[in-house]
């Protein structure tokens, strides 16, 4: 009877050791000096370091790439608070750099890891050892990263006008509202330009729509070349464009408008064997406290554009 009970305890321990050795999770037990006490098969196989090279040695001497300061910070809270702490791949891709090992279905250069560090109290309830549990989350990480990239692409697509690669009207108007609100709060100068290609209908009628599209594309390119990083250019309608000039007072906005006007005037679009010349008209308006809404500001700028048209086109009008 006794012998049998002894056998069963022996078996239990034996099985538990087998399970811990073979489980597909990394297990590392450390003492207070951060010396390795337990090193299971997962750790052995992925690191290529045999237990005799690791046991009783400081974790930081075995893995010099592991930041000692950072790890001590993490582990200290486990010793003192006697509660677990966690690391996630989003914050730190890995604790131990293990190259990815599957030649066919492996999708990353290294293993992404989540880890949990748990306290191991002794029989007196003092925490003299901690256990680092390392999970391989490469597949989850790779999927999530791919999803993030796809979402980012979709977001850009939904904001962009396909013909011109400028912002589309919906997104551009959102940004206009944002800049209007920003002015209300911070009063930093902001100007708006609305512009339109002169006699665009004639271009379409005389040369055909593909030529018209090419003209629109070239104007957009000219706009993209001239704007600075923080300016916000958008295609407002067919041949109408809006440019928000952030941090730009009236004189700067007028210089911008005049430079763009000259640039387009000098431009020649070669398409289908023909040379096409054309011009643009612009309205410029700098934001001040008298505008109660972004729409008022936009309308005022549009009035400037109409005045330029009425005044003979190929010019800009600044609206006080």
């Amino acid at each position: 009877m006794l012998k049998k009970a002894g056998d069963s305890i022996f078996n239990d321990v034996h099985w538990q050791m087998d399970i811990l050795q073979n489980i597909d999770v990394g297990l590392v037990v450390l003492d207070e000096q951060y010396k390795v006490v337990v090193w299971n098969s997962f750790m052995q196989n992925h690191s290529g370091k045999m237990p005799e090279k690791v046991l009783n040695r400081s974790l930081f001497s075995v893995f010099p790439e592991l930041s000692e300061d950072w790890f001590r910070h993490k582990a200290e809270s486990v010793f003192v608070l006697q509660s677990a702490t966690f690391t996630t791949w989003e914050q730190r891709p890995y604790l131990f750099r293990f190259p990815h090992y599957r030649p066919i279905t492996g999708t990353a250069e290294h293993m992404y890891q989540n880890s949990t560090i748990i306290p191991l109290p002794n029989t007196k309830g003092e925490v003299t050892n901690i256990c680092v549990i390392v999970y391989d989350v490469t597949d989850t990480a790779v999927n999530k990263i791919a999803q993030q990239i796809a979402t980012e692409k979709l977001k850009n697509l939904s904001r962009t006008d396909h013909l011109t690669a400028l912002y589309n009207r919906g997104y551009w108007e959102q940004r206009l509202i944002q800049e209007f609100k920003r002015f209300e709060r911070y009063q930093s100068p902001c100007s708006l330009i609305m512009m339109d290609i002169d006699h665009f209908k004639r271009v379409n009628d005389n040369y055909g729509h593909p030529t018209g599209d090419e003209v629109i594309r070239q104007v957009s390119r000219a706009i993209r070349e001239q704007v600075r990083d923080l300016d916000i250019p958008g295609r407002y309608g067919g041949e109408e464009f809006g440019i928000i000039l952030t941090n730009t007072p009236s004189d700067g906005a007028c210089v911008f408008a005049e430079r763009l006007r000259q640039k387009i005037e000098r431009m020649v679009v070669h398409f289908d064997g023909k040379d096409i010349h054309f011009t643009i008209s612009l309205g410029v308006c700098t934001l001040n406290d008298s505008y109660k809404s972004y729409k008022e500001w936009l309308e005022k700028t549009d009035q400037g554009l109409y005045r330029s048209k009425e005044g003979g086109r190929n010019r800009y009008t600044f609206m006080e």
């Binding site: 809270s77 702490t85 966690f86 914050q91 730190r92």
Partner: peptide, 17 residues
């Protein structure tokens, strides 16, 4: 982000323990 998570873990751990 790591700071936020570490702080949360420490405060939660202390309180829930």
């Amino acid at each position: 982000n790591e700071l936020l998570m570490d702080t949360a873990n420490v405060l939660n751990g202390a309180c829930l323990k």
